Computed example of a mutant assay.
Amino acid sequence: MEIIMAVLAGILFTTGVYNLLQKQLLRIIIGTGLISHGAHLFILTMGELKTGAPPVLTEGIENYTDPLPQALILTSIVISFGVTSLLLVLAYRAAKVNGTDNMEQLRGNDYE
């Protein structure tokens, strides 16, 4: 299961970086979201996936799931939601003021 999660995280990182290198602002924002989701899966995989194990220690249990990666992912989800909403508002404002969402035109270059 960890192999599948690692491959999926790698695919998310790859597509996220590809979208970050695009010219449209919306694709750049989607790329940041994909990279954050890849980081969530990577953190979850580092915590060793254990199915059916309790998340807290109780008496007589030797195999338990570490709750720290889950808490880190929950915090990361909130932060990535805030960053994504901020980027969407900034992109909307930049597109409305400048009339375009193309990064080359926003930089002042007229390459097409």
Rank of each mutant, 00 (worst) to 15 (best):
A6S: 13
I29T: 02
L57P: 05
A9Y: 01
I11L: 14
L34W: 14
H40Q: 10
S36N: 06
E2W: 15
P55Q: 05
L90I: 09
G108Q: 02
Q24T: 11
L25H: 02
G108T: 00
G31V: 00
V78R: 09
K50P: 03
P55V: 01
Y18W: 10
Q70L: 14
P69E: 00
K96Q: 10
E59F: 06
G31L: 02
R93W: 09
T84Q: 08
Q22W: 04
V97L: 09
V97D: 05
T32D: 08
G10T: 03
I79F: 07
T32N: 12
V83H: 09
I43A: 07
Y92V: 02
V78H: 03
I79A: 13
Q24G: 12
V89Y: 09
V17T: 10
Q24H: 13
L20C: 01
A6K: 15
L106F: 02
L41K: 05
F42M: 06
I73F: 09
A9G: 01
F13K: 08
R93V: 12
P55F: 01
T14H: 12
L68H: 12
L34T: 10
T51I: 14
L20E: 00
Q22C: 06
A53W: 11
V7W: 11
G108A: 00
L20V: 07
I77E: 02
I73A: 04
F81T: 14
E104C: 10
I3W: 15
K50Y: 11
E48I: 15
A95N: 10
A53G: 02
G10C: 01
L74N: 11
L26F: 14
M46S: 13
L34K: 15
Y18R: 15
T14W: 10
T45Y: 15
L87P: 04
G31M: 05
T58Q: 04
G99L: 03
N102P: 06
N102T: 06
L90H: 07
I61Y: 13
I43Y: 03
T15D: 11
M1S: 11
F42N: 03
E62T: 11
M103N: 08
T32A: 13
D101I: 08
T51W: 07
T75W: 15
T58E: 07
Q24V: 06
